[in-house]
Simulated assay, not measured.
Amino acid sequence: MNEADTYAIISETFQTVLFAAGPIMGIALVIGLIVAVFQALTQVQEMTLTFVPKIVAIFVGLLVFSPFIYSMVKRLSDQVFDLVVSGGF
């Protein structure tokens, strides 16, 4: 295994982490912006109002995107384990 192979594995790992975490982070961002605009318009500064909708949305997003996240991580782990078995590491 040379440096190019190592770089490819690391690059694939970062890409998998970004794609797996992206939908959940996007949901948190959108809900956070909606709550912030609502708080700015109504001047309601309740602290729990910022956390509860985000937590609920993140849990729903995890339920919806779990198969996608699982398939991404499984594909990467299969590639790495195949390299280990073949002696590529």
Rank of each mutant, 00 (worst) to 15 (best):
T13S: 14
T13Y: 04
T13I: 04
T13V: 11
T13E: 02
F14Q: 06
Q15L: 12
Q15P: 00
T16Y: 04
T16H: 08
T16Q: 06
V17N: 02
V17E: 02
V17G: 03
L18Q: 14
L18C: 06
L18Y: 03
F19E: 03
F19P: 01
F19S: 06
F19Q: 08
F19C: 03
A20W: 05
A20N: 09
A20E: 06
A20S: 13
A21C: 15
A21V: 06
A21H: 02
P23C: 05
P23D: 01
P23V: 05
P23R: 09
I24A: 14
I24E: 07
I24Y: 00
M25V: 14
M25C: 15
M25N: 07
M25K: 05
M25A: 12
M25P: 00
M25Q: 02
G26F: 12
G26E: 09
G26T: 08
G26V: 10
I27E: 08
I27Q: 11
A28Y: 15
A28H: 15
L29N: 04
V30K: 07
V30E: 00
V30C: 02
V30A: 09
V30S: 10
I31A: 06
I31Y: 07
G32I: 10
G32V: 10
L33H: 01
L33S: 03
L33P: 02
L33C: 08
I34M: 10
I34G: 02
I34C: 06
V35Y: 13
A36L: 07
A36K: 02
V37D: 15
V37K: 12
F38S: 14
F38Y: 10
F38P: 07
F38G: 11
Q39F: 13
Q39W: 04
Q39G: 05
A40Y: 09
A40Q: 12
A40S: 12
A40D: 05
A40R: 14
A40K: 14
A40W: 12
A40P: 03
L41P: 01
T42N: 05
T42I: 08
Q43W: 03
Q43S: 15
Q43N: 14
Q43Y: 12
V44A: 11
V44G: 12
V44L: 15
V44H: 12
V44R: 10
Q45V: 08
Q45K: 13
Q45M: 15
Q45E: 11
Q45C: 11
E46V: 09
E46C: 02
E46L: 00
E46F: 04
E46H: 08
E46T: 09
M47Y: 04
M47F: 03
M47G: 00
M47Q: 11
M47E: 09
T48C: 01
T48P: 03
T48S: 13
T50N: 14
T50I: 10
T50W: 00
T50D: 00
F51H: 00
F51A: 05
F51C: 05
F51R: 01
V52H: 03
V52I: 11
V52A: 11
P53A: 04
P53N: 01
P53Q: 01
K54E: 10
I55P: 01
I55Y: 00
V56C: 05
V56S: 02
A57K: 03
A57M: 12
I58C: 03
F59I: 15
F59G: 09
F59S: 12
V60R: 05
V60K: 04
V60Q: 00
G61M: 12
G61E: 05
G61S: 01
